[in-house]
Design a protein around this nucleic acid. Structure first.
Lengths: 192, 192
DNA sequence: CCCACATGAGACATTCATGTCTCACACCGG
DNA sequence: CCGGTGTGAGACATGAATGTCTCATGTGGG
């Protein structure tokens, strides 16, 4: 009856279900609750015992995505060293979460309501601060606003994840492609 | 009874309805057929007389988006002059369609089916060719594949349109922000 | 051995968007 | 004035996904 006993008896951990759902919805955003359940190897009833409904599931995925991104932001130590290197570390750390991020990016349900998770605001603030620091240190150009650079990074992460799942970009090139484009742009540099 | 008479008597042109739907769905992707109808100033019945169903409407919007992008690709004359200038002309020409493009970008229904509009393939080919030309002329770096640059451009257009509607980026900065980031990147150049 | 408990399977009601239909009305040309 | 025609309003059926419920089953611990 104890909580410990309860959790240990669960055939599938709630977190496992969440990961499975993230994996499936990343590939097929319109999946049914039934499909999500089957993908996790459980029944629809059990899925409902973990998440009250589809909305709750999506919200949980949102929280998971935010948590992973915040962990990546933390792990990348974006306040240390050159900003360009920090961006590289950050993208590399976010890479495993890029698929989930892309899914959340297209789940407009999350943003249509008036109240949106404050986690996004914290993430935005962290990223924006990184770009602002890079501008202040003279590494980044100042004619592109930190806010836009943040938005652009989200967009590149999403399209990068999409391009990988579609097989148009090699999985191993993900981080490099994004970082090189975001920082260096497409133009050939004069001389290294 | 003639076709001419039929069309002239329509209070609202089918194209107007399509534009209105594009405008609404760009802002609220999950809008109902009823909302789309009301936004166009017509009844749901009339909307169904124009488009057999929601699927048909989305397909029509897809065709519209493709047509607009192809027109922009044409107008930008991407096979003339420096590739960088061509990219700038192209983004500028696509700007009015960016919102619609962003909507289609998130409408995964369009890509889940096995058969997808060949217009996208033509667009991809045109964009990829532009980037390839830029690489060949020595303007663009060769370590970023033309396919990735194409995908990245889509992503930047979508996130740019989104950022503008959210008020995070000034509407007038749309083209410049995208082009400058795509071509020049965030790093401060050594010297102009 | 027995009990507690999580689970799977399935039935069931509900909700919502959609698709279809009818009918009355306004308008326009003859 | 009158018939044709497009339209709006609304009723109605449909289908899909969802949310809720019950019950049988298996398993693990006491």
């Amino acid at each position: 009856m104890s909580h410990v006993g309860y959790r240990c008896l669960m055939a599938v951990d709630r977190d496992q279900v969440l990961r499975s759902a993230a994996s499936l919805l990343t590939r097929k955003a319109g999946s049914t609750m039934d499909e999500v359940a089957r993908a996790a190897g459980i029944s629809r009833a059990t899925l409902h015992r973990h998440f009250a409904g589809r909305d709750a599931l999506v919200r949980a995925l949102e929280a998971l995505g935010i948590a992973e991104c915040e962990a990546a932001l933390e792990a990348a130590r974006t306040d240390e060293g050159p900003a360009a290197d920090a961006v590289r570390r950050l993208v590399h750390a976010i890479e495993p979460s890029a698929g989930l991020l892309a899914f959340l990016y297209t789940e407009n349900q999350l943003f249509e309501g008036e109240e949106q998770n404050e986690g996004w605001a914290r993430l935005d603030a962290g990223l924006t601060e990184l770009f602002r620091r890079g501008q202040e240190s003279g590494e980044f150009r100042i004619d592109l606003t930190p806010v836009w650079l943040t938005e652009a990074l989200y967009g590149l992460l999403a399209s990068g994840a999409w391009a990988v799942t579609e097989g148009r970009v090699a999985r191993n090139d993900f981080t490099r492609m994004i970082v090189e484009l975001l920082l260096g742009g497409a133009l050939r540099r004069a001389e290294p």
